[in-house]
């Protein structure tokens, strides 16, 4: 990221606010918060240079629990808000936090275009395959047979494959993590932030309240057997065919990040007026 390595200047605690998280005991998101603070400390980022942007949902509560600048915006639009911030303030480190409902359902369109646009920021989706905050409705990653009050007997609708969508849409870095693995997740997030362009990190983060079955995830996850590829075709085949619990960096692209052209000065308006003169 920067020429000067300033690691170890900041401690994890420097990134933690004194606001007490409102998450259920045992929620995977506590671990994600720990991974965040560990990541920022590893990168030695001054807290005031980091912006954590989110939408609505359990996972989107995370900005206020950090000691960074944060924006807890409307449901599903965090990526757009973050893009406006990052292109005007390329000096800042922008991390977007979302969940499977916020990011893949109401925010689905922005997900496609954020991948395509490839602005240099990191998108973290805490995926628990359920709407937790509204008490257990199916999300785009919920299994078809999962029974809920809103979908008795299951949705019978095929879940969405976010990593494949991200790859097809142009994301420049794709990884999957498990919230319980705080250190490994932080290591991946460090890489994601360092990687130029749009980095997408899906973190499997169990909802112990509405998906107690997800407590079993800790036994199902496993490290990816092979190193990350920069070949999209290879990555597509792997991601499409893996078991969904394959952890690690799965794809590293080499697209140039998007940054609008800038020029001119801030004060010279006379040139603009010339076109109107009679």
């Amino acid at each position: 990221m920067t020429a000067v390595d300033t690691r170890n200047v900041y401690k994890q605690a420097d990134y933690k606010s004194d606001v007490k998280p409102i998450w259920c005991p045992g929620c995977g998101d506590y671990h994600v918060l720990m991974s965040f603070t560990r990541t920022f400390a590893q990168l030695g980022l001054p807290p005031e240079q980091v912006c954590v942007i989110s939408g609505i949902g359990c996972s989107s509560r995370i900005p206020a629990y950090t000691n960074c600048y944060g924006f807890h915006g409307v449901h599903g639009r965090s990526l757009a808000l973050a893009a406006g911030l990052k292109v005007t303030r390329p000096d800042l480190t922008v991390v977007v936090a979302s969940g499977d409902g916020d990011g893949y359902s109401i925010g689905g369109n922005h997900f496609l275009h954020a991948c395509r646009r490839n602005v240099d920021m990191t998108y973290v989706v805490m995926d628990n395959h359920i709407y937790g905050m509204t008490k257990g409705q199916p999300s785009p990653t919920t299994e078809p047979e999962f029974d809920t009050a809103l979908s008795p007997g299951g949705t019978r609708v095929r879940p969405f494959h976010p990593l494949v969508v991200a790859l097809a849409s142009g994301a420049n870095f794709i990884a999957r993590c498990f919230s319980g693995h705080v250190n490994e997740t932080a290591d991946v997030l460090v890489e994601a932030i360092r990687h130029p362009g749009f980095s997408f990190v899906e973190i499997l983060s169990p909802c112990v309240t509405f998906r107690p079955d997800e407590k079993a995830w800790k036994d199902l996850v496993h490290p990816a057997p092979v190193a990350a590829t920069n070949d999209p075709a290879k990555a597509a085949r792997r991601i499409m065919t893996d078991d969904g619990f394959n952890l690690g960096i799965l794809y590293r692209g080499s697209r140039t990040p998007y940054q609008p052209a800038a020029g001119g000065t801030h004060t010279d308006l006379s040139q603009l007026e010339k076109d109107f003169e009679l």
Binding site: C51, F71, R77, L81, G84, L85, K86, L92
Partner: peptide
């Protein structure tokens, strides 16, 4: 997206 982008820029 457009309006959220300008909110993000202005926040910055």
């Amino acid at each position: 997206a457009a309006i959220n982008m300008i909110i993000g820029a202005s926040f910055g």
